[in-house]
Design a protein around this nucleic acid. Structure first.
Lengths: 246, 246
DNA sequence: AAGCATTTTTCCGCATAGTGGAAAGGATGG
DNA sequence: CCATCCTTTCCACTATGCGGAAAAATGCTT
């Protein structure tokens, strides 16, 4: 497969910048990418002149505003690709399926396929919620080493009588999620609504989470382990789809 | 200023893709960028292998998932840069200042500087609201030719007794916003809360909006025109900062 | 089914665009 | 004020990317 050296390297630079939290000095980028200084500097100038990178007053570099636009457009696309997979989950379970990602410290719902039932979950696309009270949030946090920090920053406000409200208890819960490969929400965000969420992986990193949500009675009638297995397989397809093996 | 041809062109390709709504065939990209086919194809392969572009089953190309991550990181950065400007607005008015962007059909609050007053607006960072009931929303819509479509899609749900609830009335309001160069919200989202918002421009396009919000009594005591002028100037600084002149 | 038009992909010799080592130029801080 | 660290500039060389044109794939029409 053909590749263009300078483009490839420019992407390395941008990713290095993102890895450092969106801001880094030239030499930090050099350390991370292993590219020679001159080369990095030239690439940065190119990105700079287009607004994809920005130079701070202390001469450090940061990700630029132009990326926001592309990122937004791409996010909409991701929602579109997810659709068929979400529909498969609906077919499988009869319940509404959602795709969510972690944005900053919040869970954001990106796409949805609605259940055909009369009683069903409402459209949540665009909604931001805290991670601690949802199945998708737990799955997304379970992969993060800084889950504790996030939880301490956001707090764990009580949403219902079932909400887990202590950081310690939540860290234990995340351990369970990691072990079983899926996350549950037993009416912790909204009374009477249960959810089951599985991770979407880009290689090994968790980049998103897919879930189904429905009323307690119907959710409890489903075979959880069996369902989780099927959903993991769909999520894996989607993951491979979004970020194909190099 | 130095530049790297292939990187520059790769960015052209990505932007062309975004212009076409995130998805396009090779020849559409060629038409838009004026680059030779072979060149575009090679660049697309390079972006493809990194997940920044994706190829659909019908061989068309689309923006890839890898952009979402960079976009998110960049968005957080934008919030950081906005901070000093928001603080200037707080100093100017004594009220809480916010930065918001349009994401899909929603207004999303990206950053905030809080008023020093005891009675003040609450942190809204991360919140998504519909555009029709906020000053920032009006400013963001005022620049869009498809404002009517957006409003029809989202609807104009009544939030308070002052909310504007018809598309026609809102289009008239947007005309006013364009004419005066700032937007107001007179308790249309929340009773007793008034806002004044100005556009942040990247060149000529409106990319974001900055606003101040506070209780009616205090907001009415301010000289609106004078304040709007000062805020526009701050927003212009910020705009120039985020996307420096080519 | 066969042919035609359109779009995408591959190929390859050439020239130039990009490389990277090394030196100069600026900051920072003890 | 000097030493150290980090960033920017420079330039000769050549590997890298260029792009026209041909081949392959698709899908539209008759």
């Amino acid at each position: 497969m053909s590749t263009v050296q300078s483009v490839d390297r420019a992407l390395d630079v941008l990713e290095a910048l993102a890895d450092q939290g969106g801001e880094a000095g030239l030499s930090e980028i050099a350390a991370r990418t292993g590219l020679p200084y001159g080369t990095i500097h030239r690439l940065l100038q190119a990105l700079l002149s287009r607004g994809y990178v920005r130079q701070e007053s202390d001469r450090r570099y940061a990700l630029g505003g132009a990326l926001v636009r592309l990122g937004g457009a791409a996010e909409r696309m991701v929602g579109v690709w997810a659709q068929p997979h979400l529909e498969k989950m609906v077919a499988l379970s009869g319940e509404t399926a959602n795709l969510a990602v972690l944005e900053g410290d919040f869970v954001v719902y990106v796409a949805q396929a609605a259940s055909p039932r009369r009683l069903r979950m409402f459209a949540e696309v665009g909604r931001r919620v805290l991670p601690h009270s949802t199945a998708v949030g737990k799955v997304l946090l379970a992969d993060r080493v800084d889950a504790g920090d996030i939880l301490r920053r956001t707090g764990l406000p009580r949403r219902t009588e079932h909400t887990i409200t202590s950081v310690e208890a939540m860290l234990v819960e995340l351990e369970t999620v990691r072990a079983q490969g899926y996350g549950m929400d037993f009416g912790e965000e909204e009374l009477g609504v249960h959810c089951l969420a599985v991770p979407v992986r880009d290689g090994s990193r968790v980049i998103a989470s897919m879930s189904i949500s429905g009323p307690v009675e119907r959710m409890e009638a489903l075979d959880r382990e069996e369902l989780a297995r099927a959903m993991r397989s769909i999520a894996a397809d989607f993951g491979a789809d979004v970020s194909p093996p190099r």
